[in-house]
Design a protein around this nucleic acid. Structure first.
Length: 105
DNA sequence: CGGGTGACTTTAC
DNA sequence: CGTAAAGCCACCC
């Protein structure tokens, strides 16, 4: 049985719209543990099959794909995002256009 | 007041 | 631009 915190994190990720991304910190804040952004990433790599939820839409605060090495290949995360219409500046998501804040949903 | 860990964040240099 | 360090806290063992 997963904890309420984990369940909420997962359901939040599930709600990220196509073409949008959110951050670990925003998810943590929305789930009531503002300072547990590190644990959000921990959940993503331990609690759930990687292909059942859009984990590629979760990036760090700067729009960097810090979790890409947890995918099958480091290229996959970026390719998935690009295929959904997300724009990049160098190796970062263009957060100004694509940041989705669950707290303002 | 257990100890280790982390897909984070912020500050500092 | 890069590296380092500290803070952070819920989970797992």
């Amino acid at each position: 049985m997963k904890t309420d915190f984990i369940q909420k994190v997962l359901s939040t990720v599930e709600q990220i719209p196509i073409g949008k991304v959110t951050t670990y910190g925003a998810i943590a804040e929305y789930c009531g543990a503002k300072s547990s952004s590190r644990f959000v990433g921990y959940i993503l790599s331990n609690s759930v099959p990687i292909h059942e939820l859009p984990f590629h839409r979760v990036v760090n605060r700067n729009g960097e794909l810090t979790g890409k090495f947890h995918f099958l290949t480091p290229f996959l995360m970026r390719e998935l995002l690009i295929s959904e219409g997300i724009n990049f500046i160098d190796d970062r998501v263009y957060m100004k256009n694509h940041f989705w804040n669950p707290n303002k949903k």
